[in-house]
Computed example of a mutant assay.
Amino acid sequence: MFYLLLTLIVFCIFMSLKTLFSPYKIKGKLVSFENFMFLTTIYVTVMIGFGLIYSLLHLNGYPALGDTSSVRPANGFADTLETSIYFSAMTLFSVGHGDIVPLGAGRVIAIIEALIGYTIPAAFVAKAVFDMEHKPPIVK
């Protein structure tokens, strides 16, 4: 069951990122609500997907995250999921705060997630510029 869930999560993340490279035309305006929602959907999918990977590893006895604060230990699945998604967001959008650190296999996963977090905006801008340059001329 572990490997099936892990495969499903990775597949969903991959399909979300694939939309950045699909031939779908982004709306003519570089700043639009549709483009904002497109980018938001990709970020949310990746953030939740990686959060689920960290949680899944934790549930199967592979420590992927360690809490450096002494505020409270994780009690149950809800706390583990909350901590995992929080860490995922901090890794995807920045370099993190240092209150939660990756352990073991979580380090490699965090590196991959940070790399994806830094390349999503670049890929989005490149796609928007490429689509604008290859837009058919308007016939009057």
Rank of each mutant, 00 (worst) to 15 (best):
87 F>G: 00
35 N>G: 15
21 F>W: 14
139 V>W: 02
41 T>W: 13
70 S>T: 06
53 I>D: 03
109 I>R: 01
123 A>H: 09
87 F>Y: 13
59 L>E: 13
44 V>C: 14
93 F>T: 13
42 I>S: 07
32 S>R: 09
117 G>D: 04
14 F>T: 15
65 L>F: 05
30 L>W: 13
4 L>H: 04
130 F>V: 11
103 L>E: 07
36 F>V: 11
133 E>V: 08
66 G>E: 00
92 L>G: 04
67 D>H: 07
31 V>E: 10
35 N>M: 09
18 K>M: 09
37 M>G: 03
25 K>F: 05
20 L>S: 06
122 A>L: 15
114 A>R: 07
68 T>E: 05
36 F>A: 14
16 S>Y: 01
51 G>I: 03
43 Y>C: 14
109 I>D: 00
45 T>V: 13
118 Y>M: 13
23 P>V: 07
3 Y>Q: 11
18 K>F: 07
119 T>V: 12
22 S>R: 10
44 V>A: 14
12 C>D: 14
68 T>S: 05
91 T>N: 09
5 L>Y: 11
99 D>W: 00
95 V>C: 08
69 S>H: 01
95 V>N: 11
81 L>R: 00
53 I>E: 03
102 P>Q: 01
68 T>W: 00
114 A>W: 14
118 Y>C: 15
80 T>F: 04
101 V>R: 00
60 N>W: 11
133 E>T: 14
138 I>Q: 10
57 L>D: 00
94 S>C: 09
103 L>P: 02
111 I>C: 13
29 K>Q: 13
115 L>V: 10
126 A>P: 07
130 F>N: 13
70 S>H: 08
126 A>M: 13
98 G>N: 01
56 L>V: 09
120 I>L: 08
